[in-house]
Amino acid sequence: MIDVGAPSQERHYNPDPHAHPGLHAIAIFEAAKGLLALLAASGLEILGPVPLQRWLHELINRFQLDPHHGAIEWLSNALNPDSVHLAAAIGLAYALLRFVEAWGLWRVRTWASWLGCISAAVYLPLDVYALVQHPGWLSVAVFAINLIVVWVLARDIFKRHH
């Protein structure tokens, strides 16, 4: 039985001594990604499809693109209230996932290292593809950052289990 009158015990932050020191830096990075996703999702909900359709038509006119061809036609047809709400919901879910991961990494939780390692590793094949198709400093930087994140988190998991 819980004694309601008893003073509450504070939970002290007790980091794992084997955890990699880069976990806090990755946590900040993940929280920043979550904040950007939250801002994008909010922006989609605030704007709605009408300004997005107007901006797309302005781009088509400015760059003299064919509005009835390929991705431009698909995007023009896809900009409707339902798709904007769906994109905002996906952005919100992504933001929540990044915030949960950031909290776990900040608190040096093993599950957060697993989550971060897997979610960063998923992007590595896409990063390699981008590096081959569009070589340049940006592709190299994105690949290097994701590789470092995977390495730091995998090393953290390995050290905790051994």
Score class of each variant (00 low, 15 high):
residue 2 I to S: 09
residue 2 I to N: 06
residue 3 D to E: 15
residue 3 D to P: 02
residue 5 G to N: 15
residue 7 P to S: 09
residue 8 S to H: 13
residue 10 E to G: 06
residue 11 R to L: 14
residue 12 H to E: 14
residue 12 H to Q: 14
residue 21 P to F: 03
residue 21 P to M: 00
residue 22 G to D: 07
residue 22 G to S: 13
residue 24 H to F: 03
residue 25 A to E: 03
residue 25 A to H: 06
residue 27 A to K: 01
residue 28 I to R: 15
residue 34 G to W: 00
residue 34 G to P: 00
residue 34 G to L: 00
residue 35 L to N: 04
residue 35 L to R: 05
residue 36 L to G: 09
residue 36 L to C: 13
residue 37 A to V: 00
residue 37 A to L: 13
residue 43 G to E: 12
residue 44 L to S: 03
residue 45 E to P: 02
residue 46 I to K: 11
residue 46 I to H: 09
residue 47 L to T: 14
residue 47 L to D: 12
residue 50 V to M: 04
residue 51 P to R: 04
residue 51 P to I: 08
residue 51 P to N: 07
residue 53 Q to R: 14
residue 53 Q to S: 14
residue 56 L to V: 07
residue 57 H to F: 03
residue 58 E to K: 08
residue 61 N to K: 10
residue 62 R to F: 10
residue 65 L to C: 07
residue 65 L to R: 06
residue 66 D to C: 04
residue 66 D to R: 12
residue 67 P to C: 10
residue 67 P to F: 04
residue 67 P to L: 07
residue 67 P to S: 08
residue 69 H to L: 13
residue 70 G to S: 10
residue 72 I to G: 02
residue 76 S to G: 15
residue 77 N to L: 12
residue 80 N to D: 14
residue 81 P to D: 14
residue 81 P to I: 07
residue 81 P to F: 03
residue 82 D to Q: 09
residue 86 L to T: 12
residue 87 A to I: 06
residue 89 A to M: 09
residue 90 I to D: 08
residue 90 I to F: 12
residue 91 G to A: 08
residue 93 A to E: 06
residue 93 A to C: 09
residue 93 A to G: 12
residue 94 Y to I: 08
residue 94 Y to V: 10
residue 99 F to S: 01
residue 99 F to Y: 05
residue 100 V to G: 05
residue 100 V to F: 05
residue 100 V to Y: 05
residue 101 E to Y: 01
residue 103 W to C: 01
residue 107 R to A: 12
residue 107 R to Q: 11
residue 108 V to Q: 00
residue 109 R to K: 14
residue 110 T to C: 03
residue 112 A to W: 02
residue 113 S to P: 01
residue 114 W to I: 13
residue 114 W to R: 04
residue 116 G to E: 01
residue 117 C to R: 01
residue 117 C to A: 14
residue 118 I to Q: 03
residue 121 A to C: 11
residue 122 V to H: 06
residue 124 L to W: 06
residue 126 L to P: 00
residue 127 D to F: 00
residue 129 Y to Q: 06
residue 130 A to N: 15
residue 133 Q to P: 01
residue 135 P to R: 11
residue 135 P to M: 00
residue 136 G to F: 10
residue 138 L to E: 09
residue 138 L to T: 11
residue 140 V to R: 05
residue 140 V to T: 11
residue 140 V to G: 04
residue 141 A to S: 15
residue 142 V to L: 10
residue 142 V to F: 00
residue 145 I to E: 04
residue 145 I to C: 07
residue 146 N to Q: 06
residue 148 I to Y: 13
residue 148 I to F: 11
residue 152 V to T: 11
residue 154 A to K: 04
residue 154 A to Q: 05
residue 157 I to L: 15
residue 157 I to H: 01
residue 160 R to L: 05
residue 161 H to M: 11
residue 161 H to G: 07
residue 162 H to Y: 10
